[in-house]
Amino acid sequence: MPTARPTPRPRIAALPVYSRAAGSASVRWRASSNESTVAPSPAIREAVARAAAHANLYPSLAGDELIAAISERMGVHEDQVVVGGGSLALLQLALTAFTGPGTEVIHAWRSYEAYPILIGIADAQSVPVALDHEYRHDSEAMLAALTPQTSAILICDPNNPTGTTLPPERLRALIDAVPGHVLILLDRAYQEFDQAEPDLAALVCEHPNVIVLRTFSKAYGLAGLRAGYAIGSPEVMQVVRATAPPFGLSAVAEAAALAAWGDREHTRHIVNTVTECREKFRRALGDRGLFTPDSRANFVWLPVGDRAEALQTACVRHGVSVRAFAGEGVRVTVGCPDAEAAVLAAVDEICRPR
């Protein structure tokens, strides 16, 4: 048999690997992937069943019905909206369209671990900028990192995995200060869990270099179906749309997203469940002497440093998976009191104040 085999591009061969949570296949509760703990509503399940009955047919070319619904509610034109198989897929399209060899993409770190992977796939250079002492984006440091090679800046707000946000005036000041030729990718995956929601339509109208990324995976509870949308200026979104493959959003995902978009009461139920559990969990951790940053997402960040992996192992023993980042901390998805009780039992084992 021949021993030669295809060789990947060096940048692809060197990509970091998206981490897996320990024990996620064997535990009783999953608090490791920021999924909704609330199942889809009957209306969403019925929409999925209707769409699945016609799975032999192609979906719409570009997710046309979902685009129409989003543009109407958001108050933007349809040519300002692109939908696809999750916000990550849309982020990859934007990076492919506007970055590449010889360019740099600035992002906070630690932030969403998929960012360096997607930037590398686009063959651009990742430029990580450390969070500030409050675990937030360091606006001044990010602006200082701008160079003539900077093609894009990624802002994850609320930030994953810390859950922190920039105050609205600081977020706006950061966006205002970025040169117009640099693409700003504002990832608002967890927006519904943040009390201070920016006016996204006004933001993209005032700043033609901004793309806002949104997902149906979190507050809409559709992580398993992969649906998301992006909004921006017509000119920028036309370029993003040109990089998208046809039929990028399945008919089932579009039907579910449309139903979830219209089922505002169910979204409120998911958000209320998360926010109530989040605050109770943070108070319980505080009672144990453990500091946590103010989270505006559906998870809580435990900055336990070198105890992160030990805490993850203890959580698995107690029947719950969490996401550990070695030497830094542990991210815990909230929304299930039993899962949070299991994490607290593990904290009592591993993280007693020294």
Rank of each mutant, 00 (worst) to 15 (best):
E349W: 03
R282I: 09
L61S: 06
F193A: 12
A230I: 14
A242T: 12
T333H: 00
A177P: 00
A145H: 04
E104M: 04
S33I: 08
E134W: 05
P293E: 15
I121S: 00
A89M: 08
A244N: 08
H269L: 13
V127D: 07
R296Q: 15
N56T: 15
F216W: 11
S321R: 06
M1R: 06
T37H: 05
L258Q: 12
E254K: 02
C315K: 08
P246T: 15
L88R: 06
R317A: 14
R50S: 10
H77I: 10
I117R: 02
D157V: 12
N272T: 14
P208I: 15
Q238V: 09
L222N: 07
I153C: 01
G84I: 14
G86L: 11
E309H: 02
L88T: 13
L174N: 05
E46F: 00
V182T: 14
E169Y: 02
Q92Y: 02
S87W: 07
A244V: 14
T275E: 10
L222Y: 06
L171I: 13
L290H: 04
A202P: 00
V127I: 15
L225E: 12
D287A: 07
D138V: 07
H266R: 10
E279C: 01
R323I: 10
D187H: 04
V210M: 06
L131G: 00
G224Y: 06
R268A: 12
C277F: 02
D123V: 05
D176G: 01
T313L: 09
T313C: 01
V81F: 02
V330T: 07
L225K: 02
G262K: 08
S87V: 12
I119H: 00
I153W: 01
A51K: 02
A69Q: 13
